[in-house]
């Protein structure tokens, strides 16, 4: 029960739109950032981890309409050994999960759902977002001060069926690490190399991203999704 309403699982999102950018970052620094979770970053290349920044407009879904910004890192499934060799590293990416490090939202119902049901690190922010143009934009603001602003330029259309339909999302709130099975059904996907502009303000998470070198890094790739359907199952605790 959230705010007097029964939320059934899995939670279904019937219409969302997304813009995201992926960065290669130093694995040791990334590992230090997420050490509190007990998880290990995936290293598709030796010494490099993947940090993903995304903003999402939820229009139609079980948690109501809202905006969200995500800072995530690709992680190895808990309890698996680091893959060996270049091929093993690439193969390991197929099973990689997404550790959600920070997840500000702009509405209270989803804030409480996210923290209570899955332990997602949601907090309340002002989040102006423009997904209508060729360049998608989102800012995360607290009391009028910008913590993060991301611009994502859309690329070339990607044929349907691309992307990862099933991912595990990981989170760690109040010392408890959880795994949430997550399915994604995107359409209207566009991708390109580079194409992101990141502005980092005065905020602890912005400081962390600065320590990862993101204030001057070129994105590996950007993607935009015009229509995304998702489901989130119940979370299960990951033993430490």
């Amino acid at each position: 029960m959230i705010q007097g309403e029964r939320v059934e699982l899995p939670v279904r999102i019937r219409d969302a739109a997304v813009a995201s950018a992926m960065y290669a970052v130093p694995a040791a620094t990334a590992q230090a950032v997420i050490a509190y979770s007990g998880l290990d970053v995936a290293e598709p290349l030796p010494g490099r981890a993947i940090c993903s920044l995304a903003f999402i407009r939820y229009a139609d879904g079980d948690l109501g309409p809202y905006h969200e910004f995500a800072v995530a890192f690709l992680v190895r499934p808990p309890g698996t050994a680091p893959p060996a060799g270049a091929l093993g590293r690439l193969r390991g990416m197929a099973g990689a999960g997404a550790f959600i490090h920070w997840l500000p939202v702009n509405q209270e119902f989803t804030l409480e759902c996210g923290r209570t049901i899955w332990g997602f690190p949601k907090e309340l922010a002002d989040m102006p977002m423009d997904l209508s143009g060729r360049t998608k934009r989102c800012a995360v603001r607290f009391g009028g001060r910008t913590a993060i602003e991301l611009h994502v330029r859309s690329g070339a259309p990607v044929p349907g069926g691309a992307g990862a339909p099933k991912v595990d999302a990981y989170s760690c709130l109040d010392g408890v690490t959880r795994r949430t099975p997550w399915t994604l059904t995107p359409s209207g996907v566009r991708m390109r190399a580079g194409g992101a502009k990141l502005v980092l303000g005065d905020h602890p998470v912005a400081e962390e991203l600065r320590s990862l070198g993101l204030d001057r890094a070129r994105a590996l790739s950007c993607s935009t999704v015009r229509h995304l359907e998702m489901t989130f199952e119940a979370a299960e605790e990951v033993p430490r």
Binding site: R57, Y58, D60, P65, Y66, H67, Q107, D126
Partner: peptide, 11 residues
């Protein structure tokens, strides 16, 4: 309906 939801999402 979609217009209303998008505006609501944008606060």
């Amino acid at each position: 309906a979609l217009a209303a939801r998008r505006l609501a999402a944008a606060a």
